[in-house]
Design a protein around this nucleic acid. Structure first.
Length: 687
RNA sequence: GCGCCCGUAGCUCAGUUGGAUAGAGCAACCGCCUUCUAAGCGGUAGGUCAGUGGUUCGAAUCCACUCGGGCGCACCA
């Protein structure tokens, strides 16, 4: 397949770099012994030789060394003695003892303890922790070394449709995808973020049709994007109206059928568990059929009760087909439709970019579906040549084992589908972009599509490219239904961001007004409200495990208490407050060589937590789960809050202790700033 | 009908792929500001991990079935 040298379609290339440069290459000051900045890997390395003496493959056993799940068990625990004992035919505690005797850990840990059935509990030496903190003092990367072998990862996320308003689902993809990009870059991989926007599909036919028939010229001149959005909604509404009217008898029939089925079952004299279950099922079917009919009737009535809409609907009875025709003509190269496309697209993209700018998100590439249009015919003929694609009911399909439905690459009318585009995109990403890996940050409801896509890709002969669907769950409202406005519309993103910032502003005002002497100017308040509001939205999304559905709840998101972005931002601001109060410059202080002492449990816990940063990062990238980073951030801020409570800096018993605590404070601030930056969340020196 | 996912404290969610007495946040109750930001800290209470059976040293996690819920299944993307 040929990749067109010229980009026939408009594509935007951003040079944006998500993580501040300063965070990327910050060499450590001391270059002596380099421990990997992942304490767990270090411990595992020390266990490896001891285990290799007892067993051929130590790797799975090393996996069983974990952070302790309870502080009483120390800092780390090894759980391998029990399975290993079985393998060796010995008692677990004996096996544990043998391993412990072979260990050389004295520079890192207190003597290991064997507990319960054979757990090995490890407690790091406090002087070791102190040395490590001293070593990474002042480092924004907390000592994290870039990977030795970088991969090139293409991250496909956000991917809105132009002209259709973006909604919370796009927000979720955008926020998760951006966090993944930033984290991958941080550890040293090469990342290409690609916004695979829907700029070539059915909705464009609708806009073109709307533009030709329903355009309000004044509105168009005032704001093309708003007018296009209105036109899309209108055409969609009218198409739906006709489709729904046509569907009403069938829905009515379905209800009647379900009802009579239920009656028949209820009158069945034979009583059995199976029958009872069938009655339950039939009852649910009646309820569902009722709901379907009611929804359809309501949507029809909405049109019929609005004379202007009804008149339009009646004047355009075959609007759906004619809109599809416009799409087909666009794809066929019709000059007028292509001219309109070229006219519409920049405004649509600009509207999207406006939102990305507010969110602080950039893309390396914005290659929409249209970009791949010239490659689609070759994809299909290549699939046919390999006899993967066959004609069925007029459509060109790839039939895959285990899938009832085929993977359609060309429709009966000759049009290509997003399956075709996705295949072309994969080929392009491997051949032109030289990607090693592609991530798709897309709603989990599309998992079957990706399963088919990846299966087809493999059959097609593309090798050496790792493909992963990074799926996420639906965003629900507090009513546990997909998040919508009361009228049933999707919630526009722009208004969502406004709402978040407005709410945050109220909190910022309230807080500052409570002070004896307010600290903040209106401009500062506005800036902080933005940081807190956007941080709240992003954090709410990211701190849920990505594949669970989550409930979008303003009050929780911007709560002034608990596990929110604000908690971390607040902890950061408190560190800045300490340095302000003592009139010490944080940046210059942190480069001084200060002896770190960890005398209290709070200081020790904070230090250990900071040193677990590398482990947290690697857990995130293991399966692209940003919520593991939010958990680490919360634990870190929590450790700091306890430290702040118990360990006064300005009233420290000695200058040495004060300086040691200042080092911890500074490092903690860097940890929070870096960690939040990987999630696309900012901090402020004052809150 | 076929397939995928889920069910953990009153609510919202974690639970590092089979480890020790199942954890957070919110809400509730009790306590802590003349000292670095109380957007904070400490404490109390709250659980049949939907249910039953199985696998084994050991199960919220794996298997089977049952109950309850969600989603997807031929030309929208």
């Amino acid at each position: 397949m040929k990749i067109p040298a010229d980009r026939r379609r408009l594509s935007l290339v951003f040079a944006g770099n998500a993580v501040p440069r300063s965070l990327l290459f910050c060499p450590l000051r001391s270059q002596e012994v380099q421990f990997p900045m992942n304490l767990l890997s270090l411990i595992r390395q020390r266990f490896a030789p001891a285990l290799q003496e007892l067993v051929a493959d130590a790797a799975p056993l090393l996996e069983m060394i974990r952070p302790a799940q309870d502080a009483r068990f120390g800092d780390f625990q090894a759980n391998f003695a029990m399975p290993l004992a079985k393998q060796l035919g010995q008692a677990p505690r004996d096996v544990a003892r043998q391993v412990v005797e072979r260990l050389n850990l004295t520079d890192l840990c207190e003597p290991p303890e064997i507990a319960g059935p054979g757990f090995i509990n490890l407690r790091l030496r406090t002087d070791f922790l102190a040395t490590q903190i001293q070593r990474i003092a002042g480092d924004d990367r907390l000592g994290y070394q870039p990977v030795a072998i970088p991969r090139h990862v293409v991250v496909d996320f956000s991917s809105p449709n132009v002209a259709k308003p973006m909604h919370v689902g796009h927000l979720r993809s955008t926020v998760i995808g951006d966090a993944i990009c930033r984290t991958l870059r941080f550890v040293g991989h090469r990342v290409t973020s690609d916004n695979h926007i829907g700029d070539w599909g059915t909705q464009f036919g609708m806009i073109i049709y709307g533009y030709r028939h329903f355009r309000d010229q004044a509105a168009w001149q005032l704001s093309p994007v708003n007018e296009l959005a209105r036109l899309y909604k209108l055409v969609n509404q009218l198409s739906d109206y006709h489709a729904t009217v046509a569907k009403l008898p069938a829905l009515q029939q379905a209800l009647t059928d379900a009802q009579s089925r239920l009656e028949r079952l209820k009158n069945d004299p034979a009583a059995s568990d199976k029958l009872a279950k069938q009655i339950t099922t039939a009852g649910k079917e009646v309820t569902a059929a009722n709901a379907d009919l009611a929804a359809a009737t309501a949507s029809v009535q909405r049109i019929q009760q609005t004379p202007e809409l009804l008149a339009l609907a009646n004047a355009h009875p075959d609007i759906a087909r004619r809109a599809r025709d416009e799409t087909a003509r666009l794809h066929a190269g019709d000059p007028e439709n292509n001219a309109l496309w070229n006219q519409f697209l920049p405004a649509c993209l600009e509207a999207l970019n406006q939102i990305y700018r507010r969110l602080g998100i950039t893309f390396d590439l914005t290659l929409g579906e249209s970009y791949y249009n010239p490659m689609l015919a070759d994809v299909v003929s290549s699939l046919k040549a390999r006899q993967l694609a066959t004609l069925s009911e007029g459509a060109t399909c790839v039939f895959l084992e285990g899938n009832a439905a085929p993977f359609i690459v060309q429709k009966t009318d000759g049009a290509y589908t997003y399956a075709t585009t996705d295949l072309a995109t994969i080929q392009y990403r491997q051949q032109a972009l030289k990607a090693d890996e592609v991530l798709y940050v897309v709603d989990k409801r599309q998992s079957e599509h990706f399963q088919q896509l990846f299966a087809t890709t493999a059959l097609w002969g593309i090798q050496g490219l790792k493909l992963q669907h990074v799926s996420f769950g639906t965003v629900m409202g507090t009513d546990n239904k997909p998040y919508k406005t009361r009228a049933g519309d999707t919630v526009g993103l722009e208004s969502l961001l406004d709402e978040a910032i407005n709410r945050a502003r109220r909190i910022v005002d309230e807080n500052d007004d409570r002070r004896e002497v307010p600290l903040l100017s209106p401009e500062e308040r506005a800036r902080i409200a933005e940081i807190v509001g956007l941080g709240g939205i992003k954090y709410a999304d990211l701190h849920h495990s990505r594949d669970s559905d989550y409930v979008f709840d303003w009050d929780k998101m911007l709560a002034t208490t608990g596990d929110t972005a604000t908690y971390m931002q607040y902890a950061y601001a408190r560190v800045c407050g300490i340095f302000r109060k003592l009139q010490i410059d944080r940046l210059s202080f942190s480069t001084q060589n200060v002896a770190v002492q960890l005398q209290t449990p709070e200081e020790r816990r904070l230090a250990l937590q900071l040193l677990m940063f590398g482990y947290a990062i690697e857990s995130v990238l293991n399966d692209y789960r940003p919520h593991l980073l939010t958990a680490w951030l919360f634990d870190t801020a929590d450790a700091f809050s306890q430290f702040f409570d118990k360990c006064s800096v300005q009233n420290a018993e000695s200058d040495e202790l004060r300086n040691s605590r200042l080092i911890l404070c500074d490092l903690m601030a860097r940890a929070i700033r870096t960690g939040l930056s990987l999630l696309g969340i900012e901090v402020s020196d004052i809150l």
